[in-house]
């Protein structure tokens, strides 16, 4: 069944995590902004990666990772253009130009760099094609995904941390009452100044974001910085209703007797079965 969706709802890190945990074999196709990436996995490990219009041939990868010079690359392109990557790799090893390790580590570096670039994609569609792997002529690797997932998660963590620090954008900001603090002596960025100019217990953070044309992440970053610097604090917006008082929770069972409760659940089970 389908494993497909939108990167806005499902990040690259989450996808890698899913593929890693489920030990999936197949190709993840991501149609990003302007280009398409194809990432192959074998039993949950990175096997191959190809980015849209880029020359992903072995010769190009070896050149990009500085294993061969520009002139060697041109020569290979001219004389070995009909060879598959595997054939070319064998030729280079047998001729003593490179070792198998050289080739594999070049490919790993190249594939991992593609994944790193994917971490910056926040828009696009993805689909996973089970059991689809690159053709026989391609050289595949086996790279554990854990480190890549951790790397991608760092970006995600920032977002999650900011959400924890500032859980609601419907709160307002006010300047902290610290006598002696002069804003003019503090070095603020243009974005921070723009936010500061709207700080007022009547304005919610969401309204400030709208006024300053910042997205949720940007406004949280700026507000977090201002809070950390001790310049502002979060307050309930003026005029907002007070929080609802906690009311005692209604009881789920009409009886307090444990045996009667169990009997009641068993009656429910029998009734549902008979529907």
């Amino acid at each position: 069944m389908a494993l497909k969706g939108n990167l806005r709802d499902f990040s690259i890190t989450q996808l890698l995590n899913l593929i890693n945990l489920a030990q999936k074999t197949g190709t993840l196709v991501i149609e990003g902004p302007g280009e398409t990436a194809q990432i192959a996995f074998r039993q949950g490990k990175l096997a191959y990666a190809q980015l849209g219009g880029e020359d992903g041939s072995l010769a190009a990868i070896l050149h990009q990772t500085r294993r061969i010079s520009a002139s060697q690359y041109r020569l290979l392109k001219e004389r070995a253009s009909t060879m598959s990557d595997k054939e070319l790799g064998l030729l280079l090893i047998n001729a003593g130009y490179l070792t198998q390790d050289d080739i594999l580590s070049s490919l790993q570096t190249y594939f991992i760099n593609i994944i790193r670039r994917l971490f910056t994609w926040v828009e696009g569609f993805f689909r996973f094609e089970p059991d689809t792997l690159p053709g026989d002529g391609k050289i595949t690797v086996r790279v554990d995904l854990e480190n890549l997932i951790i790397e991608g998660s760092r970006q995600l963590r920032e977002w999650e941390q900011l959400q924890e620090e500032i859980p609601s954008l419907d709160m307002a900001l006010k300047f902290t009452e610290r006598p002696g603090t002069n804003l003019r002596n503090i070095s603020l960025s243009v974005e921070e100044w723009r936010v500061v100019s709207y700080v007022n217990p009547r304005n919610t953070i969401r309204q400030i974001a709208r006024a300053t044309k910042m997205n949720d992440l940007e406004i949280r970053r700026v507000v977090y910085g201002l809070i950390q610097a001790g310049l502002v604090e979060i307050v309930r917006p003026e005029g907002a209703p007070p929080p609802r008082p906690q009311v005692p929770q209604a009881r789920p069972f009409p009886t307090a007797d444990k045996n009667e409760q169990k009997s009641l659940v068993n009656r429910l089970i029998n009734r549902i079965r008979s529907l």
Binding site: A2, K4, G5, N6, R8, D9, F10, V247, Q249, A250, R251, P252, F253, V265
Partner: peptide, 20 residues
């Protein structure tokens, strides 16, 4: 939710955008 015996969370399996 007050006084409920239990609850069921329905998720549309075809719309991953709603999973979060």
């Amino acid at each position: 939710s007050e006084g409920m015996l239990g609850f069921i969370v329905m998720v549309d399996s075809t719309r991953p955008e709603t999973f979060r």
